[in-house]
Write a protein that binds this DNA or RNA. Structure first.
Lengths: 233, 233
DNA sequence: TCCAGAAGTTGATTTTTATCAAATCAATTC
DNA sequence: GAATTGATTTGATAAAAATCAACTTCTGGA
């Protein structure tokens, strides 16, 4: 269902690097490449997924429910895939996924993914790498949650974002503050109060634009730890 | 370094199922099979692992630090492996590991594991499965942390343990209460208070032995959710 | 431009969780 | 068996975080 051009584009994705052409062909056979507008749900908790989703552009929020509560687990962008674990194991999703920024998504049939996994070592290795990375990412998040107060989590989020965007001490929150609050494991009210507290450490808030006027003070508060905050380690 | 008998035993492990004999031979080439007493540290945060560890028997606690704080991420038993993600990616451990119950551990050279990953699709698929399972496990834990109060976490731990041990309404805490507290994300004092509160729901505590006298009341409190508490889903 | 509704903020209050200190209990050594 | 040490429990208090309510700001149409 992919055009020639789409096929070319898709086959260059990191997830296919080193794979045999037959594997790529099989995976792209029943694949779709779609653009989705904001708010669209791409996956739903408890449903068993039919496709592995790869984010080509845009952003997707992964969230989960319990009773009447909801929390954001993760926000992912390109070139990451999601609901990978559920696809590999053919089990129900533990999280729902919604588009948070208009996104282009490549959808690979789940059955083909499982087939490829057993036939092409390179593809299996890539999936293993993908899963290992996701595992480490969520491990860091769990450490973040269990070992830090909400103010520390916020301060570290800020420090990290700043670094990732070139340390120019101007950070923009790329989505609604409520989403950031949920991601950091706090209610929106406390995020506001958190920013108010950070004012004492030289942080100025103008809507979703944040200015860090005293980087050292912020770092002293945050005390970032590579084993929690370093995206590459 | 394995005896003939050890080799036979090791090669029957789930992690090798479906693998080519050469792969198994290569992995077991530089492998060790050791028994470790309690308290021994098998891996240390921030160190890059030389071996993939597979638990044959006993139990291992995975824990992590930040500043002067420590928390337990997970307690694992056979036939699970640990520090798998770090081995696959050749990156530093995010967690330390200590023996919590005398354990027999199979140690596979990290470099061989990475080599096998790219040469044997069956092995790569097994590692992917292993990682996917670990990922889902920790995802559930993160949901547990972010969506529940500490009393709810404790109640659900109890309900789940009871189910896993045959629903005979007698549960034994298999390690120190402090470890359980850390695993559930609370201080030991609050675990005590949690048990005191559960008395009102028919739970009796005698040391590490717990009795559930009103299973229905406990379930009503816990409100278990398969997407958080079901080990098989 | 104005308005409605949503998002975000602020204050007061409650609930949850941690901290600190002391007491109790349990296992282990001498 | 007494003494020591560490784990657990209990109580008092403090800190962190959530809730509820009121208010402000922002945003996207009519």
């Amino acid at each position: 269902m992919l055009s020639r051009q789409q096929y070319e584009e898709a086959s260059r994705l990191q997830i296919f690097s080193g794979c045999r052409p037959e594997t790529i062909a099989m995976l792209l056979e029943g694949a779709f490449l779609h653009r989705f507008p904001e708010r669209i749900d791409l996956a739903k908790e408890a449903e068993t997924p039919d496709f592995l989703h790869v984010v080509i552009s845009g952003a997707v929020e992964l969230y989960a429910h319990y009773r009447d509560r909801e929390t954001t687990i993760e926000v992912i962008g390109p070139p990451n895939s999601f609901i990978t674990a559920a696809v590999v194991l053919d089990l129900p999703n533990l999280k729902s996924a919604r588009v948070i920024e208009p996104a282009k998504i490549l959808m690979l049939p789940a059955a083909s993914v499982r087939k490829a996994l057993n036939e092409d070592a390179a593809f299996a290795a890539r999936i293993a790498t993908e899963l290992a990375t996701a595992y480490r990412y969520i491990t860091k998040d769990l450490k973040n949650q269990k070992l830090r107060s909400s103010l520390e989590r916020l301060a570290n989020w800020l420090v990290r974002r700043d670094r990732e965007s070139g340390s120019r001490h101007r950070v923009v929150i790329p989505f609604e503050k409520r989403v950031l609050a949920a991601q950091l494991g706090m209610v929106p009210e406390n995020l506001s109060r958190g920013f108010a507290t950070l004012a004492r450490f030289g942080v100025k808030v103008k809507g979703s634009a944040l200015e860090i006027h005293d980087p050292q003070a912020l770092e002293n508060l945050a005390k970032p730890d590579p084993l929690i905050d370093d995206p590459s380690s």
